[in-house]
Design a binder for these strands. Structure first.
Length: 283
DNA sequence: ATGTGTTCCTGTCCGC
DNA sequence: TGCGGACAGGAACACA
């Protein structure tokens, strides 16, 4: 689930309770998620100060005072719960442990961060901070969609000659890193491009238009997530998902929202995943 | 080299 | 109320 905007929202929620603070204890309740945890993960986290929380694509990276970086991926169903936050920004009382609470970080000062992931498609790993970008999972990533390396030339070149549907091309993390099923659908809707169009057959000018559209869709979602963060004092402290209105995602059989369009949102399955679009205004 | 399908898990929802 | 099937925001991997 969590796509780039949700992961960024989680990072922003975690930063005030983690950055500059020491991990007093780490409870690791099982040996693995999608992959085995690194050897002695709990010991390697204990006593480490979190110097900085970063995000790369859908990965959260915590640079530690030990010279190591903790990598966290939320997979499809991963959530972070913050409790006991002394800043009073999140719920103060620690909730009872829940099923699928796989890792719990106890911060000095009282805050607690619980990683809960029913489907266990999430991941955690530890690596040397120096050269972290060479990590197997990070080295294959394309440019950040909100960064300077993501520009019209890049996307046009990446699409050139590709016979794969544009939907799949935008989901390809090596072309642009951080988009998932929801925001690809939303971006294609705004750009007026049918998800089944072959990437290499779209005119360069239309591909170029996708760049600002993708940026805009993501920026709006991050802003929506940020506004949901402000209410965490009385909320349950859960980070990872927030209410956001989509134009096409999840709106099968509903009316197209484009002014002047009387089309209906359709759902098709592409490589096993749902694509939502308006056949009237996406070509 | 590309493109496509399978796979890892649990939970929820919908029709019968 | 139970049961089966479809489906869910990811992405590595095996294959044609």
């Amino acid at each position: 689930m969590p796509e780039l905007p949700e992961v960024e929202t989680v990072r922003r929620g975690l930063a005030p309770v983690m950055e500059g603070r020491v991990i007093a204890r780490a409870d690791v309740n099982r040996p693995d998620l999608r992959w085995p945890f690194p050897p002695r993960m709990a010991e390697r986290l204990t006593g480490a100060r979190v110097d900085r929380l970063r995000r790369r694509s859908k990965y959260i990276l915590a640079d530690l005072s030990t010279g190591e970086t903790l990598l966290v991926h939320l997979g499809m169903s991963g959530r972070m719960l913050v409790s006991g936050d002394p800043l009073g920004r999140f719920v103060h009382d620690h909730p009872a442990p829940q099923k699928h609470d796989h890792v719990v970080l106890h911060m000095e000062g009282g805050a607690r961060i619980t990683f809960n992931d029913p489907r266990r498609f999430g991941a955690m790993d530890l690596m040397a901070t120096d050269g972290a970008e060479g990590h197997k999972l990070l080295s294959v990533l394309g440019p950040e969609p909100l960064g300077n390396d993501f520009h019209e030339d890049h996307l046009v070149k990446a699409f050139r000659g590709k016979m794969t549907p544009v939907k799949a091309a935008l989901l390809d993390q090596g072309i642009v890193a951080g988009l998932g099923n929801i925001y690809v659908c939303e971006a294609l809707f705004r750009a007026g491009i049918h998800p089944g169009r072959r990437a290499g057959r779209i005119a360069a000018a239309r591909v170029a238009e996708l760049v600002p559209v993708i940026r805009q869709v993501l920026a709006e979602a991050i802003a929506a997530g940020g506004s949901s963060l402000r209410d965490f004092r009385q909320a349950d402290g859960e980070l990872g998902y927030f209410q956001h209105a989509f134009d096409v995602y999840g709106r099968e059989d509903e009316a197209c929202r484009r002014p002047g369009c009387d089309g209906t949102i359709r759902r098709i399955v592409q490589s096993g995943r749902s694509s939502f679009f308006c056949a009237q205004c996406q070509r």
